[in-house]
């Protein structure tokens, strides 16, 4: 450069990656390593001076704790149902939006909007509109004579689970829509024309043309959303705090409660380690189906 100082290419490359490496080591690697280390310690946050190494005792504790397994199965139910609904609604809405209609941009904007609404806001709105006594949803259902008794949306284990799933579907279906829409835009129109010429109806065209084209993106999105949904904390904690009883606990809420309410940071961390193991499995599946790594060999 001007001052006769030129960085070699390699130096520029390393210089550019350096901040990332520093941040990654400090803010990602270290906390994760620390989380794993804590899983082997008894750690009361009020008395860090008493922290002691306990070997596998935290893991023994969680595997012997019925609540851990309840949380695990409840998380599985909540994840599966959320994903099914998100995928079905997501594809349906994406197809609706993938039309050349005047004003479609407005609809698209409104339908994607829930994705950016803060979880705190949604949880509060949910508690307001689904309030059994003063909420507008029960009022509407009652005045339409669809129900006689008010529905206790958050007071019975099954309804509370349904309400959290509803919230999750409402907030994250747009994510599926975004991904599917992005893919739909790349489907060559000729494929449809060919199918039309062959005399295929709307349903056939969807099954024969659209769905195969979406297969890859859907698998990726499903794996992704499964990993995330399984580990969600705020959606559940802010709406039900895991209740009533412990009927909407998942592992994230379990970990949080163990860490803070029970003052067992070690047990919370051990739960985190179990979650990490499970998500690594999910990530491997993701890498396989998404085909990352294969194209590295042929740049």
């Amino acid at each position: 450069m001007r001052a006769g100082f030129t960085l070699s290419d390699r130096a520029v490359g390393l210089l550019f990656i350096a901040p990332f490496l520093a941040a990654a080591i400090f803010f990602m690697v270290y906390p994760v390593v620390e989380a794993i280390r804590m899983a082997f310690y008894s750690y009361n946050p009020l008395r860090p001076d008493l922290s002691t190494f306990v070997g596998l005792r935290n893991f023994e504790f969680i595997f012997a704790d019925p609540l851990f397994w309840d949380s695990f199965w409840q998380a599985t139910v909540w994840t599966l149902l959320s994903i099914v609904f998100q995928t079905v609604f997501g594809v349906a809405i994406a197809l609706l939006l993938h039309q050349a209609l005047p004003g479609i941009a407005l609809f698209r904007g409104l339908l994607l909007f829930p994705y950016i609404v803060p979880t705190v806001v949604i949880a509060l709105i949910w508690r307001w509109i689904f309030n059994p006594e003063i909420g507008v949803v029960n009022y509407a259902l009652q005045s339409a004579s669809l129900i006689k008794e008010p529905i206790y949306w958050l007071s019975t284990p099954s309804m509370a689970m349904a309400s959290t799933i509803l919230l999750n579907v409402w907030k994250y279906t747009p994510f599926v829509v975004i991904c599917v829409l992005a893919r739909l835009q790349t489907v060559p129109l000729e494929l449809y024309d060919a199918a039309k010429v062959d005399g295929a109806g709307v349903v056939r065209r969807f099954l024969d043309v659209t769905l195969p084209q979406l297969k890859e993106v859907l698998i990726v999105v499903i794996v992704f959303r499964t990993i995330w949904t399984f580990n969600k904390f705020e959606e559940i904690y802010l709406l039900t705090k895991g209740g009533p009883g412990t009927s909407t606990f998942n592992l994230a809420v379990y970990s949080f409660e163990q860490s803070i309410a029970n003052l067992r940071l070690g047990v919370g961390a051990a739960t985190g380690v179990v979650m990490m193991v499970m998500l690594s499995i999910g990530s491997i599946i993701y890498l396989r189906v998404s085909g990352f790594g294969q194209d590295e060999k042929s740049p």
Binding site: A24, P31, V32, A35, F233, F256, M276, S283, Y286
Partner: peptide
């Protein structure tokens, strides 16, 4: 890949460490 993994690790694991 490393980043991808980091992306999937839920905040609840990071937050206390």
């Amino acid at each position: 890949y490393f980043s991808l993994l980091g992306y999937m690790v839920p905040s609840i694991i990071f937050v206390f460490p």
